[in-house]
Design a protein around this nucleic acid. Structure first.
Lengths: 348, 348
DNA sequence: GACCTTCGTCGAATCGATTCGAGTGCGACT
DNA sequence: AGTCGCACTCGAATCGATTCGACGAAGGTC
């Protein structure tokens, strides 16, 4: 009846008349324990209202917490608004979950110490296109925590799950060029750690820290070396629409095609076009990236590169399990597939 | 150079020539430590590549892990596909994050022991409309872990964040009745723990375990006592479409209005109607629930009840912080607002 | 010069379990 | 009957930090 203090393994053991070590064995099915002893222990636990070994103590002793950190850089809302990120998360959970690991969401709260420092994770996945990975990785590696990065800039000691961002974007650009386009604008993901909306300038690219966004720009520029464009604050329809309105507003400078770095952005651009009375693909061709299933009739018709999000997540999960098992783990790279939709056509 | 063993606070202290207790103080800014001592300790840490106190040990000693569990019952993909859930998650993070807590995603992997048992969480949020809360809650409470439930059936010891599901649905039903509808069908969320698509029968309702879905059914039946309908596997556009096709396929039995229990489901029903050549709201009125911003032109026009998802999440977060601080915490209930869209009209 | 604060540091206890080697008792085998 | 082996059980060490009370030295007061 003592309200102040919760029962511990020791108190259960005492009530059951056995030692703490035996009680521990009884709870873990490991080691040889007679059936009758186990029953006694479990009975005592029931009597005391003991709910099993304290995870905190257990994880200290075992050196494992059963938690995998998922390092996101955006707010949760932004990160998960993009179905591609969800698919990857799902892929990670698909493999780590059955192995007994839960996912801890680590977002970068700008203020104060990084939450990374205090998280009892066994391993971490750097998620999405993170412009600020380096310090994070340093902290994690110093801790001896295995790290898997999805589409990061290759870093020694980190398992990388790659994507053919450059080549894939080049395919899209070549598709547009093949249709006869020459005046093409880019709508990019965030390039920089202090993200903001701005023109894509050489200077900006020079100090860009987002590997994914940068690679995609380069891929496009391999075909359209002079392509300009706008950066956004992230992969959302709204951001795409804002960039679209800015790009398409002036008939003088209007491009004939837009390469958006995600499907969500592409949908936004298309929406902007509609608002401005432009027909897609008649007046404007638009391509996206990801090949996500968006519940939007427009998106279903998008010309885009389809990337295997779930598989990427699974690969990351597999990598984590490998690393946790003390094995090496292999970096993997995925390729995207061109999907011709109904949003591209020859320029007018 | 020892590869085998990572530095500990003790080794850092030894190198710095101070005691472990002092080193601990140096890392925590708590207690009085001279500047020079702190420097010595930090230097030693740098030399040894020590990344700060081990979170596992710290959490054992402190009795706090800085982790809040988010108990989901669906797969991650399903749970986060619904913007309403995301908004709530965001609201939770909005308050718990700045207080130094991270969110641990706890999904019910059907197989094996519940992951709840082994999670080192300080508190837990039961998320969304969970049909199987009871056992979970029992485990958590026995552990002495504070629990907040969003739209759960009221349970002693659990802080509840409620919503006027019944009244809100009745408003929608009355709106339809006012328009002249009498033949109304329901498209519900999952009612049962072993979810499946089926007719809404009395028997099914009797053993339903999802409080939210059940309340919404009751609210509708207060106006249309005989309303039948179909259950779905969850809140997705696809599920809504499937239910819609089944409900609307036969002209003989076709209702003049559908009450869908979420906006996503409603969009699906509307899509099904379109496929069947039915005009909304001409041939069919459809109402949803949630008032989420879906990137879908149709959804933006939905007649629905707008519920404050983010605020609900915040309330849950606030509740958690209260409970963690040892205070009582108050259950809160939110109300939804009727929003008349363009998907309802008098029956033909 | 004696006494009292204040500041900084240290030792030891503690958080709650897991784990390993050692010990005990009992049945079986020769 | 003696010895061996097996199946359990136990004690003690350990995981890595935090925290509290005690202690010593420096500085200030009368």
């Amino acid at each position: 009846m003592s309200i102040a203090t919760r029962p511990t393994l020791a108190s259960v053991a005492k009530l059951a008349g056995v030692s703490a070590s035996t009680a521990s064995l009884a709870f873990n099915d490991s080691g040889p324990v007679s059936a009758s002893t186990r029953e006694k222990v479990l009975d005592a636990a029931r009597t005391l209202g003991y709910a099993g070994p304290d995870p905190r103590a257990r994880s200290l002793r075992r050196g494992r917490s059963g938690i995998v950190g998922v390092v996101l850089e955006e707010s949760l809302r932004d990160a998960f608004r993009d179905p591609m990120n969800l698919a990857m998360l799902d892929g990670i959970a698909d493999l780590t979950g059955p192995a007994g690991n839960s996912l801890l969401l680590l977002t970068e709260t700008a203020a104060g110490r990084s939450t990374l420092v205090d998280a009892p994770v066994d391993a971490a996945v750097l998620f999405g296109c993170s412009p600020v990975v380096d310090e994070k990785v340093a902290i994690l590696l110093r801790r001896g925590i295995p790290v898997v990065a999805i589409e990061g800039r290759p870093i020694p000691g980190v398992l990388d799950i790659g994507l053919d961002n450059r080549e894939a974007t080049r395919s899209l650009a070549e598709h547009l060029k093949g249709l006869g386009h020459s005046d093409v604008a880019l709508v990019t993901l965030e390039l920089d750690r202090d993200r903001r909306r701005s023109r894509v300038t050489q200077k900006l690219l020079a100090r860009a820290t987002s590997h994914t966004a940068l690679e995609r720009v380069h891929g496009a520029r391999e075909v359209f070396p002079a392509a300009g464009g706008l950066t956004t604050l992230g992969s959302t329809v709204d951001e795409g629409r804002i960039a679209g309105l800015a790009l398409l507003g002036d008939p003088e400078t209007r491009p004939t095609a837009v390469i958006a770095q995600s499907d969500l952005l592409a949908v936004g651009v298309i929406r902007a076009a509609a608002e401005l009375g432009l027909a897609v693909p008649g007046d404007l061709s638009v391509v996206g990236f990801d090949g996500v299933r968006i519940d939007d009739p427009v998106a279903a018709e998008l010309t885009t590169m389809v990337q295997p999000g779930f598989a990427k997540g699974q690969a990351a999960g597999r990598g984590i399990l490998e690393l946790l098992a003390g094995r090496e783990g292999r970096s993997v790279s995925f390729t995207s597939a061109f999907r011709r939709g109904a949003t591209t056509a020859p320029p007018r």
